[in-house]
Write a protein that binds this DNA or RNA. Structure first.
Length: 705
DNA sequence: CGAAGAGTAGTTTTT
DNA sequence: CTACTCTTCG
């Protein structure tokens, strides 16, 4: 290893971190325990590559899983190196890189560059169409199965071969039609964003050479969360040169249900025999008691590389374990303790986080916090882009970009209502299927038949010509007949606008919104309050789109594709209100808080034990169960290691579940933390409260009696 | 065709 | 309890 003496590497790295940064002789695997400074290692390493090793920024690629992580890494890097030096650097999510790849290489895959990206709701819809059932659980199971196959790089043929149970065989059948449907719609799903680039890189030597010459150094964050497909992508991108750094922590692998496999850690050591393995065990986040509990807990798992976290941040206060009567009492109790703790610790609201296993637990908590006027923000949960009004507007944009996008067509055509309903769509759908046309194309053609009454056909034609008009104003993309637009008169307001010249996304958006009467429709259909809220969201979306288009100089089409990958979390990226954080355990990964409240730590919830698998052999199920418990344990581990100074765990003796109250046991994980007598007495929740807070608490208790 | 009403099923985690 | 689906009526 060449340790040049003159380099400007900052000294604030420990020996192991330094080793991880400096190792450039070959592949490098950094096992970074929670809070061990892994982001620092990655950013320092990028800075080192750029400044000391003459890597051109455009040849360095860093991949993360979330947009938030990518953003943070970008910010941190910019604090280290001059902006000019970092120009052209890629720090993005796997999915964003995949999107960029697909945009450039789409034609190799039989896709037009304006392909649509379907989200989970869209794809569930396809599955539903293809299966004659409304059983939602079943539909989701099939959707999930298809996704797992895709992530394992199995095509429909291969899936059919590996499927054994009747349920899997049916899923394989659906998979085949599903793939056909996507192609017909010129659409890809989330999994395709990674799968298709991988497949193309495998099959096409020229493309592979080109991309390998672009990527000279690759860094991968959260490596333990990669799936089989992502691992292949990594291998194909780095090629024989094998210059890369993977950073991960097998104890924090919590995405197996999504196809992630820690096998990839083992594969790395097998496929690259010269890989350097570096462990980061010093933790810069938590006090020792918290780390001891975390180490104890995770000791119950079998893992590849055992680590022991340590810190020099002092022993810290004892961990609190509090049993509660039920989930309602738990929420109220937490709310009161938050109030008290903020006062006693002279802390801010933002210093506290309440973490839970599943989203629905947030409801009671929200209510309790609101009652005590405690400000809070929720991360995880429903995305901004899942809201109906947002999907409505985006459907128009998707359709403008890609008129093969049938789900977008249906949504846009029927919202707001414009005389196109079930019967019209059914007839149109049938006709489109017969003629092998998209719904959009079929709307033009169906006039030549007598399948639809003139009235309904008129409604359709008005709609599609409207969309077509907008298409002509986007930059030469879309479904633009070269001979112009026969029979379509440009409305007066557009007189003088040449259809061949592209309009700015901002102008098209304004025109769209003005034309569809969306606001008016909202107020007609809904009560004043929700209508106002929804319209507010629409305006927010439009502002966001315009800003994004402006900043990154994106066309409307690029914008639409980009939007599919972004979630609500990044929307409010710049405001960080002083508020308590409510978050699922999954969404909390990578974050840290001075004081953490881990709620609902009960058998059945954490570890969460779903319904027993219907098919699969007995011993298979048993093993699967053991693996699931281990993943749940890691989830608990992630939760514990979010805490810097204090950790509070609570569980409920009873919990309202669906209809009736069920009796709960404390989670086995509490025992496994090995606290023994080193547990703080559950503090009197009433202590430290103002008389007024006490009163309101009593009132609440009575109200819920 | 579309809106309003009644009935019913539902609970894991997310790019 | 609520969010969504299916049904019925104008």
């Amino acid at each position: 290893m060449s340790l040049s003496q003159g380099h400007t590497l900052p000294a604030d790295l420990n020996a192991m971190q330094r080793q991880a940064v400096l190792h450039l002789d070959g592949p490098c695997l950094v096992l970074a325990g929670a809070g061990s400074g892994k982001t620092r290692v990655i950013t320092q390493k990028i800075a080192y590559l750029l400044r000391e090793c003459d890597y051109a920024a455009r040849n360095v690629v860093a991949l993360t899983f979330t947009n938030k992580a990518a953003r943070e890494m970008n910010v941190r890097l910019r604090q280290l190196v001059d902006g000019r030096l970092a120009k052209g650097l890629t720090i993005s999510t796997f999915h964003s890189l995949g999107l960029r790849f697909l945009r450039e290489e789409a034609t190799h895959l039989g896709l037009k560059p304006q392909f649509s990206i379907l989200d989970a709701t869209d794809t569930l819809g396809i599955v539903q169409e293809l299966m004659a059932t409304t059983d939602k659980a079943r539909l989701r199971a099939v959707q999930q199965t298809i996704s797992l196959w895709k992530n394992s790089l199995l095509d429909p043929d291969a899936a059919e071969r590996v499927a054994t149970t009747p349920s899997d065989l049916e899923a394989a059948r659906v998979y085949r039609s599903y793939a056909d449907t996507l192609l017909a719609w010129q659409a890809v799903d989330f999994d395709d964003l990674i799968r298709l680039p991988t497949v193309l890189l495998q099959q096409n030597d020229e493309v592979r050479r080109r991309w390998q010459s672009r990527v000279h150094y690759l860094l991968v964050d959260e490596y333990q969360d990669t799936n089989a497909c992502q691992y292949q992508l990594l291998r194909l991108l780095v090629g024989d040169r094998a210059m890369f750094t993977a950073v991960g922590d097998d104890d924090q692998a919590i995405y197996a249900w999504r196809g992630a496999t820690v096998d990839n850690l083992m594969k790395l050591t097998r496929d690259y025999s010269d890989v350097a393995v570096i462990k980061l065990e010093q933790n810069y986040r938590s006090v020792q008691r918290i780390l001891a509990a975390a180490n104890q807990l995770i000791g119950h798992n079998t893992n590849l590389f055992s680590k022991k976290l340590w810190s020099d941040l002092g022993v810290g206060e004892a961990i609190q374990i509090t049993p509660m009567e039920n989930d309602l009492a738990e929420a109220e109790n937490i709310a009161m303790r938050l109030s008290a703790a903020r006062f006693e610790r002279r802390a801010e609201w933002r210093d506290f986080a309440v973490l839970y296993r599943s989203n629905h637990q947030a409801r009671v908590l929200e209510q309790a916090l609101r009652n005590l006027r405690i400000p809070y923000v929720i991360s995880g949960g429903q995305s901004f882009f899942d809201k109906a009004e947002i999907r409505d507007i985006l459907a128009y944009l998707r359709l403008i970009a890609n008129d093969n996008d049938d789900p977008a067509f249906i949504r846009a055509a029927t919202t707001p209502r414009r005389g196109i309903g079930q019967t019209t769509l059914k007839a149109l759908g049938l006709f489109a299927q017969e003629q092998q046309l998209s719904l959009f194309e079929a709307a033009f053609e169906i006039g030549k038949t007598s399948l639809l009454p003139a009235r309904q056909h008129d409604s359709l034609l008005t709609f599609v010509t409207f969309i077509q008009r907008l298409q002509t104003r986007t930059a030469g993309h879309g479904h633009v007949p070269s001979e112009g637009l026969p029979g379509i008169a440009m409305p007066g307001e557009f007189a003088g606008v040449d259809g061949a010249v592209s309009d700015s996304p901002a102008r098209i958006l304004d025109d769209l919104l003005g034309s569809i009467r969306y606001e008016a429709w909202l107020y007609e259909t809904l009560d004043e309050k929700p209508a106002q809220k929804r319209w507010q969201n629409v305006l927010e979306l439009v502002e966001w789109l315009k800003r994004k288009a402006d900043e990154d100089e994106l066309t409307l089409l690029e914008l639409v594709q980009h939007v599919a990958l972004v979630t609500m979390l990044e929307r409010n990226e710049d405001d960080d209100p002083d508020a308590v954080r409510l978050s699922t355990l999954h969404a909390s990964k990578g974050l840290e808080y001075p004081h953490v409240y881990l709620v609902g730590v009960e058998e059945g919830l954490l570890p969460h034990l779903g319904h027993d698998e219907e098919d699969a052999g007995v011993e298979d199920t048993e093993q699967a169960l053991a693996l699931r418990i281990q993943e749940e344990r890691r989830l608990m581990y992630v939760g514990i290691t979010r805490a810097r100074r204090s950790l509070h765990i609570s569980w409920c003796r009873r919990r309202r579940r669906a209809r009736e109250d069920v009796v709960c046991q404390p989670s086995r994980f509490i025992e496994e933390m090995g606290l023994g007598a080193d547990v703080a007495e559950p503090d009197d929740a009433h202590a430290g409260l103002s008389p007024r807070a006490r009163l309101s608490m009593l009132k609440d208790l009575l109200a819920h009696k």
